[in-house]
């Protein structure tokens, strides 16, 4: 029983990441509306970011900003006292890039709406099929 609780406490974060990832993937595969698909893509992205951040977590450590004040020049910093900053750096840029790609995705959706007058995928497919039969 104690083993079970230990496993749950050490892994539940990863399981949440996988759940969120599957929610995003489900939306990207099944949902019919393009905006819903884009929301699903963003949920997938944030789940990956959450995965990286939880990888860099350390127990009994503080945030990655070094303690400093005058008279501490000779201080030696121990790596175990601070949370791993490397995943934070990688994910910080990933978030800003994700909003830029969101802008591109939404402008593509706007272009599709201009062309076909709808955002539903099955209606767009029907219109494309009708146009190809006519020509």
């Amino acid at each position: 029983m104690d083993d079970m609780i230990a496993i749950i406490l050490s892994k539940y974060n990863y399981w949440t990441v996988i759940t969120l990832m599957m929610i995003g993937l489900y939306a990207m595969i099944v949902k019919n509306n393009l905006i819903k698909k884009i929301i699903g893509m963003n949920i997938f992205q944030t789940s990956i970011i959450l995965f990286y951040v939880s990888m860099g977590m350390k127990k009994d450590a503080t945030i990655p900003i070094l303690e400093h004040h005058p008279g501490m020049q000779e201080h030696v910093y121990h790596a175990a006292d601070y949370i791993n900053p490397l995943p934070h750096v990688l994910m910080l840029t990933a978030i800003v890039v994700s909003v830029a790609t969101l802008g591109v995705a939404l402008s593509l959706a706007l272009k599709v709406y201009d062309q076909y007058g709808t955002l539903e995928e099955d209606e767009i497919n029907a219109k494309i099929r009708k146009a190809s039969v006519k020509s």
């Binding site: 050490s10 892994k11 990863y14 990888m55 860099g56 977590m57 350390k58 175990a80 995943p87």
Partner: peptide, 15 residues
């Protein structure tokens, strides 16, 4: 995930 190191482990390879 059963192969992952425990969450918050300071000795995990990525830390």
């Amino acid at each position: 995930t059963s192969d992952f190191s425990a969450w918050g482990d300071p000795e995990s390879p990525c830390n």
